[in-house]
Design a protein around this nucleic acid. Structure first.
Lengths: 123, 123
DNA sequence: ATTCAAACTTACAAAAATGTAGGTACTTCC
DNA sequence: GGAAGTACCTACATTTTTGTAAGTTTGAAT
């Protein structure tokens, strides 16, 4: 019902409005490395070093930072086994799975249509 | 057949590999304002000032720059009527339509699932 | 004559993202 | 003993992105 004596009306989520929290979620999911991490994790659980190998060009610093952000958003689950050398596994939460599915579709579409982009890339 | 005497093998498009051009396309489409511009243009042709009004928080500078980038990628079509004051219309190319559809789905998914993110946002 | 509007552009400044290099802890292998 | 592997963190420098404010052009409205 969203309106007792004390509550203000909550506007519907809308990425087009500046202050909507959905904007932040969108930015995290579409961040340079965030998108790629989520796509890789679609294929199942991975360790830090595996992610680094799979995602061409990512630095350790950026990978660690991105993973923390995604974990903070509840998209990625981090499980550390307390052994030496360290062994940490990253996977998608159910929420992350939903996010990653959409991103995978986007990436797949780009890959499928890449020829259509190439003429433009030339310029 | 992709291999006469002079051609090098062209690897399949893959956003995970550093040098694949699909990476650049992905970055443009998922740029801060690029995503939002494409989403708005889903609803049809718009003028510069309309886009600015519809996309909360965008500056003229960023909007102009983003539109040029999307036009350069062949996603957006710019039509200028030579009158004064200027009248310019932006719309999606067929390619842009495909791109925008995927982004709209992503945005819609985020908006629909925003409640699931809010606990995480608190921290 | 002044103001206004459109769709930009430009210069400059500030903020954010990213990269590089190095360090840590501990264990196992050579 | 020394090297390698794991999953990071930290300081620092550089690059990229973004914002702000101002200027441009031309005709029409006041």
């Amino acid at each position: 019902m969203n309106s007792d004596r004390f509550s203000l009306p909550i506007p519907a989520p809308d990425v087009l409005s500046e202050r909507c929290p959905s904007r932040d979620v969108l930015r995290h999911m579409t961040s340079r490395w965030g998108t790629l991490v989520l796509i890789v994790l679609c294929h199942g659980t991975h360790r830090f070093s595996e992610l680094k190998r799979n995602i061409g060009g990512v630095s350790e610093r950026m990978l660690a930072q991105t993973l923390q952000q995604l974990e903070g958003d509840g998209l990625v689950l981090r499980v550390a086994h307390d052994v030496v050398p360290p062994h940490v596994e990253y996977s998608l939460t159910p929420l992350g799975q939903g996010a990653a599915d959409r991103l995978r579709e986007l990436a797949a579409w780009i890959e499928d249509n890449l020829p259509a982009f190439l003429p433009a890339q030339a310029a």
